[in-house]
């Protein structure tokens, strides 16, 4: 049994401790937002935060995560309010969306300790592969997220999930509860 904290909840995994964190999250905890793309650290689609650092979940075992704090895309915010999430949607720096969770986690880990990253720092912090080609928008999106992190900008591009019909109707006259 391996015990760790996943998205602020204590979890005990009844899995082989040699299981890479990626499969523990996806198949054990049903947290499928973390994606499998290669299993060997090439693509970054499985990037999560472990004790605040962006790590590729395919490269660390459950045993190595014992007692640590893991944050996945599902736990980054409960309402898509993280600046990186908002900026990615606002800049439409997403196409198929498969590499997106990994990119968001890489960028969020960067901004957590550096709210004014340079272009070079952003490029170094996001080694993730994206085949749809959202790169041209990525620098701008992370810079905008950084500005939000520094409280210099606000974005409301991605609405929170599960808005109550009454609240929706207040904002959109064509809807009624």
């Amino acid at each position: 049994m391996t015990r760790l904290t996943v998205n602020d909840r204590p979890v005990e995994f009844a899995m082989d401790p040699r299981t890479p964190l990626l499969w523990a999250l996806r198949d054990g905890a049903n947290l499928t937002g973390t994606k499998y793309g290669c299993g060997v650290g090439d693509c970054g689609a499985c990037t999560v935060m472990v004790d605040g650092a962006a790590l590729r979940a395919c490269l660390i075992t459950l045993a190595e995560c014992e007692g640590r704090f893991v944050v996945t895309i599902e736990g980054l915010s409960h309402d898509r309010s993280h600046p990186v999430q908002q900026a990615m949607v606002a800049e439409q720096a997403i196409q198929c969306g498969f590499c997106t969770p990994g990119i968001v986690m890489s960028a969020a880990a960067l901004l957590a300790h550096n709210a004014s990253p340079s272009e070079a720092e952003i490029k170094a912090a996001i080694p993730n592969l994206c085949r749809c080609g959202v790169y041209p928008r990525l620098l701008g999106a992370v810079q905008r997220a950084a500005a939000v992190t520094r409280r210099e900008d606000t974005i409301s591009a991605a609405p929170a999930p599960g808005i109550a019909p009454e609240d929706a109707a207040r904002a959109v006259p064509a809807l009624k509860p």
Binding site: G33, V89, G97, T100, V104, A158
Partner: peptide
């Protein structure tokens, strides 16, 4: 499709 793609629910 983007809001669902940015929180892992897609």
């Amino acid at each position: 499709d983007l809001p669902a793609k940015v929180d892992g629910s897609w």
